[in-house]
Amino acid sequence: MPGNDPDALAAELFKTFARFEYALKAAEFHRGEGAAEANWRSFAESVAGIFEEPTNESVAAAIAYMLEHPPKKQVVEGGVLGWSVSAPQTDLQSDRVLIYVRRVRNNLFHGGKFNGRFFEPQRSAALLQHSLTILDACLAGFTGGERSLSQ
């Protein structure tokens, strides 16, 4: 793991997220015909147990951190960029946490958290590290019968 260096963590998250999203679609967690789009909600339903009763301390800590200190969503209000504490509209904890993981990725990818330097580097590093921990737990704990994310 890249330690607490936000640049190294961001590179690791991009790489892990890209492989993970491809694996979801290849394992038939997609939205069906048309654009190849991962169905994160369906996947969240299949791994809900990991989030309800985590057996690993670091996974439990990562989930708790994401729920207690969720990443904000970049918004435009009155023509000005800002941040919103936008809670996802979902009834499933695994879905909520995976939405937060995707928000961390989106904030990076779309430039919200980095403009030559990381904004709030310690918080950014924590969000990146916890996102990686959660994705790793999902990969390790997934048991989807015929569907496998490690193929």
Rank of each mutant, 00 (worst) to 15 (best):
E77F: 02
G78W: 13
G78H: 08
G78K: 11
G78T: 07
G79T: 03
G79K: 01
G79L: 03
G79V: 01
L81G: 15
L81M: 09
L81N: 14
G82A: 14
W83M: 12
S84M: 09
S86Q: 06
S86L: 08
A87S: 11
A87P: 02
A87L: 08
A87H: 05
P88N: 06
Q89S: 15
Q89K: 04
T90V: 14
D91W: 05
D91I: 05
Q93C: 10
Q93D: 13
S94Y: 12
S94A: 15
R96M: 09
V97W: 03
I99F: 15
Y100A: 13
V101N: 02
R102C: 07
R103S: 09
R103F: 11
R103C: 11
R103V: 15
V104F: 04
V104Q: 01
N106Y: 15
N106T: 10
N107R: 00
N107G: 02
L108D: 10
L108H: 07
F109R: 03
F109T: 12
H110S: 06
G111V: 10
K113D: 14
F114N: 00
G116Y: 05
R117L: 08
F118W: 12
F119W: 08
F119N: 08
R123W: 01
R123F: 03
S124M: 12
A125G: 05
A125Q: 03
A126I: 01
L127N: 04
L128D: 06
L128I: 12
L128F: 11
L128N: 06
L128R: 13
S131E: 09
S131C: 11
L132F: 04
T133F: 15
T133S: 06
I134Y: 06
D136A: 15
A137W: 02
A137T: 04
C138V: 02
L139G: 03
L139R: 00
L139V: 10
A140M: 11
G141W: 00
G141A: 01
G141S: 00
G141R: 00
F142I: 12
T143Q: 14
G144M: 14
G144V: 14
G144S: 11
G144A: 13
G144Q: 11
G145L: 11
E146T: 10
R147H: 15
R147Q: 12
R147P: 08
R147L: 11
R147C: 14
S148Q: 05
